[in-house]
Each structure stands twice: as C-alpha cells, then as structure tokens.
Simulated assay, not measured.
Amino acid sequence: MPSPIPVTRLLPKDIYPSVDIGTCSSPLTKHSHVTTLQVPVQRLHGRVASRLWSSVIHWKELRSMQSVGSGGFGSVYKAEYLGDTVALKKVKKCTKNKLASRQSFWAELNAAHLRHTNIVRVIAATTCVPADFGDESSIGTILMEFVGSRNLQQIIYGCAEPLGKDRWLRYSTDIVHGLRFLHSHSVVHLDIKPANVLVSNEDVCKIADFGCSLKLERGCEVSSISPHLIHVGGTYTHRAPEMLKGEGVTPKADIFSFGITFWQLITREQPYTGDRQHVLYAVVAHNLRPPVHNHPAFESEQGRLCRTLLSRCWSGDARCRPSSQELLPHMEQLRSHT
C-alpha cells in the first residue's frame, strides 16, 4: 500500500541504488512503480562496510532470542547474530491505526545510515520475514546493536542508587552530542525522553526509538507537518508547543524535549501532574513548565546556571532556543562547575 511519506524524508539519496544483495519491498511506492531498498550487506564491527545498514537479515544466524520488552508498536528481543549480541525489534501492525504503525517502522530507519557513539546503531532491517520468525501482525524487523537493559527512565525513577551531578551532566552532554549529530544530518527525533535514551554497560547514553522521527529536506530548516503523517508528535509531556499547535517541525523541537529530560535528570521528579488535556492546554496557553523557582536543586551557582539554560531550552518561541551545536559549550561550562 502506498505510503504518504516521501522517500527523501526517510533515507538519503546516496544509499540507493547501491551494490550487491537482495531487495526488500518497501511501502514507499507510487501507484504501480515499485521502490526497493538496496544497500550493502553489513557485518558487525566493520567486517564488511560499517557505514550502511543492510536490508537482508540472515535469519539462520539468529540464536538465543530472549524477550526484553514490548511497546505500542512492537516487541524487542535480545539475540545472538553472527557471533555478536544484538537487539531485534519486531514492529507490529496496530489494529486501531495501521497507517501509524507502518509509518513508525519506516521512520525507525531515518538514522539507519548514521554512525555515532550516542546513537543506537541499526545493523539491518527488512519487511521480508520468514514464517518461522514472523506472524501476521508483523510489519517488519529491525536488528540493532544491543546497548544494554537500562534506560534513563529506569535510572531516574526506578533505582535507589545516587545520581550525582557529574553523572547527570555527563548523561545530558551525551544526549546533546547525539542530537547535534542527528541535526547535522537533517534528522529530527521528535520523541526525546528518558525512556528513549539507553545507557550502555560503559555508562554511555545512546538515543534510541526513532519511530516518531522525520528527515528534513536537504537545505530546509523547517518542515510542515503533512496531515498524513499521523505518527508525528512524540510523548505529550515532552512535546514542544509548536508541535502541539501543529506548526512546522524544526530541530528546536528536540531541544524543548531535551530541556524536560534535563530537568528530570536534575530533580528525579515527574515534570507534570494532573489531567493530560489540562497539561497540554497549559503548556501552550499559559507557558506551563516543570518547577525551577524555589526548587532546592536550583539554589546553588550551578543550579542557577541550569535554570537559565532550561528557560532557554523550553522557551515557547522555538527561535529563542539554542541549537544543539550551541548547547554543547553550555554543557561543558556546567561540567566545569562540578
């Protein structure tokens, strides 16, 4: 079935057509013309070409699959693949919203061609799933590096271990590094929140879950939201006001979401309480934000610097927010005060 998402919003032109390998049918079709994804087979650890992901999964090489979690659009498993530990994500059809689930699968591949320390790496993805591994509710499968079993949501709220200043500042800086790289490649994540930031065994943060992401047109800083792109939006507690109003998408939407996440790392509290619709209305109409004034976490000199930075990151006017590039020196300044 044709997808309303233009090819240029999903993958850069230099990825296809390419060399070698089988093809995988894509919903990026226009009427009778069929578009296929063709990319080089990729082995792990750079054993072939490490820059690109593959549209072929060697199913017989998958071993020891163990369920590690599930969500609205799919399930995640830990597995062995070609001798390495990987994460396998099965994206399922949402019976209530089949178009949204298809869009979510293809949006997951917006950053598949990118390689960065603070971004979860995609190894392979395909819609061609053998009967032994798939089911009728499956849209496709994505193989990714296995980062670990922890995310920031669990670290902030689910464990008693201390989260010192040096640690939450390092985590926050990791996220900004990842965002800067994504934005430099015209990818906007649109769902930055603690649950979507994985933490490796080396205590490094990696941005994951690109199911809400968009690929901006090259040279464009703003993209209008097509009425067909129903997956766009992200989690309401972290969604920028312009997104709530249905305005254009820019990388500054991720900066707003980072601001809420940054506040959570500092305070280890929930950003809002109360009815969802009340929060949505108040964020747009009354500039509602998580509390910083008279909060003990923001009383020190470093805390006051954080408060100033937060006020810029979650400004109601996207033009007043710093870019991810501009954020980095501020994060380094904060780290120098620890």
Score class of each variant (00 low, 15 high):
231 H>P: 03
282 A>V: 08
224 S>C: 05
248 G>S: 14
300 S>M: 12
237 T>H: 10
237 T>E: 14
250 T>N: 05
252 K>V: 00
292 V>L: 10
281 Y>I: 09
228 H>A: 12
297 A>I: 01
265 L>H: 09
292 V>S: 11
277 Q>H: 10
254 D>K: 00
288 L>H: 14
263 W>R: 10
285 A>K: 15
289 R>N: 10
274 G>R: 03
243 M>D: 05
270 Q>L: 09
253 A>K: 05
233 G>E: 02
297 A>S: 14
255 I>Y: 04
305 L>Y: 08
301 E>N: 13
291 P>S: 12
230 I>M: 06
260 I>W: 02
269 E>S: 09
222 V>D: 07
245 K>H: 08
231 H>A: 02
277 Q>C: 06
263 W>M: 04
300 S>P: 08
269 E>M: 12
269 E>I: 05
230 I>F: 04
283 V>S: 06
250 T>D: 04
227 P>L: 04
285 A>L: 14
271 P>E: 10
243 M>P: 01
293 H>W: 09
278 H>K: 15
245 K>S: 15
295 H>N: 14
297 A>P: 05
251 P>Y: 02
229 L>H: 07
274 G>Q: 11
269 E>K: 14
267 T>I: 03
249 V>N: 01
241 P>R: 06
273 T>D: 11
273 T>I: 02
274 G>T: 06
291 P>R: 09
249 V>P: 03
225 I>L: 01
294 N>L: 13
281 Y>F: 13
234 G>P: 00
230 I>Y: 03
299 E>S: 15
276 R>K: 15
251 P>W: 03
267 T>G: 08
281 Y>T: 12
234 G>T: 01
265 L>W: 03
282 A>K: 15
270 Q>C: 06
231 H>D: 02
234 G>E: 02
272 Y>R: 04
260 I>K: 01
261 T>K: 06
255 I>M: 10
265 L>N: 07
273 T>F: 08
305 L>S: 12
242 E>S: 04
258 F>Y: 13
287 N>Y: 02
269 E>W: 03
284 V>F: 08
286 H>P: 07
258 F>L: 12
252 K>S: 03
269 E>C: 11
246 G>Y: 00
281 Y>H: 13
242 E>M: 08
295 H>V: 15
225 I>M: 02
276 R>N: 12
287 N>P: 02
223 S>A: 03
229 L>S: 06
261 T>W: 03
225 I>V: 06
295 H>K: 15
224 S>N: 13
242 E>Q: 09
237 T>F: 07
282 A>C: 12
245 K>Q: 15
